[in-house]
Simulated scan of single mutants.
Amino acid sequence: MDKLRLEQALAAGPAARAMTALPASALPDLARYRLAGARAGGPAILLANSLLDGMPGQRVLQPLQLGDGSLLLADLGWRAVTQPLPALQLPPQLSGQWLPWHPRWTLPDARQGGEGVVDAVDLAALRRRYPGRWHAGVFILQPPVAGLQPWPLLPPLSAQRHFAYALQWLLLGFCLLWRWRRWARSVA
Results as ranks from 00 to 15, higher is better:
Gln65Gly: 12
Leu30Pro: 11
Pro155Lys: 02
Gln83Trp: 13
His162Ala: 13
Leu10Ala: 06
Val138Cys: 10
Gly116Gln: 02
Leu66Lys: 06
Gly116Val: 08
Arg59Cys: 03
Pro28Met: 08
Pro28Thr: 07
Met19Ser: 15
Gly173Lys: 02
Ala15Gly: 15
Leu153Ser: 03
Leu61Pro: 10
Tyr130Cys: 06
Leu64Trp: 10
Tyr130Pro: 02
Ile45Phe: 09
Gly147Asp: 07
Pro84Thr: 03
Gly57Leu: 14
Gly13Phe: 02
Leu85Pro: 03
Leu51Tyr: 12
Leu71Pro: 05
Leu71Arg: 15
Arg133Ile: 08
Gln65Met: 13
Asp68Trp: 08
Lys3Cys: 08
Gly13Trp: 10
Pro100Gln: 02
Gln89Gly: 00
Asn49Arg: 14
Leu35Tyr: 03
Leu177Ser: 12
Gln65Arg: 14
His162Asn: 13
Leu176Trp: 00
Pro144Gly: 01
Pro14Gln: 14
Pro86Trp: 00
Leu88Tyr: 06
Pro131Ala: 06
Leu46Gly: 05
Pro56Trp: 06
Trp98His: 12
Asp68Leu: 07
Gln83Tyr: 08
Asp68Thr: 00
Leu99Pro: 00
Val121Lys: 12
Ala87Phe: 01
Gln160Glu: 13
Val138Glu: 04
Ala31Asp: 14
Leu73Asp: 01
Leu154Gly: 09
Pro150Asp: 03
Gly67His: 04
Trp134Ile: 04
Arg128Leu: 05
Arg111Phe: 09
Leu107Cys: 02
Leu170Gln: 11
Gln160Asp: 15
Pro131Thr: 07
Gly173Ile: 10
Trp98Arg: 11
Leu66Arg: 01
Ala48Asp: 00
Leu123Pro: 05
Gly96Arg: 10
Leu123Tyr: 07
Ser158Thr: 12
Arg161Met: 15
Leu90Asn: 04
Gly37Lys: 08
Leu73Lys: 04
Phe163Val: 14
Gln62Cys: 12
Pro108Ala: 00
Gln97Asp: 10
Leu94Val: 06
Leu99Glu: 08
Ala11Phe: 01
Gly147Glu: 04
Trp169Thr: 07
Gly69Thr: 09
Leu154Asn: 11
Ala87Gln: 09
Ala21Gln: 14
Ala188Glu: 13
Gln93Glu: 14
Trp105Pro: 02
Gln93Cys: 11
Pro143His: 04
Arg34Trp: 13
Gly114Val: 11
Trp134Lys: 05
Leu66Ile: 06
Gln168Lys: 14
Pro144Glu: 03
Pro150Tyr: 01
Ser158Ile: 01
Gly77Gln: 11
Leu123Thr: 00
Pro63Leu: 01
Asp109Gln: 15
Ala36Pro: 04
Leu148Cys: 00
Pro56Cys: 13
Trp98Pro: 03
Gly113Thr: 01
Arg185Gln: 14
Leu141Lys: 06
Gln142Val: 08
Ala80Pro: 01
Trp169Gln: 11
Asp2His: 13
Leu47Phe: 09
Pro103Tyr: 06
Gly132Cys: 07
Gly13Ser: 12
Phe139Pro: 01
Gln112Gly: 10
Gln89Met: 07
Glu115Ile: 10
Leu4Asn: 00
Trp98Val: 04
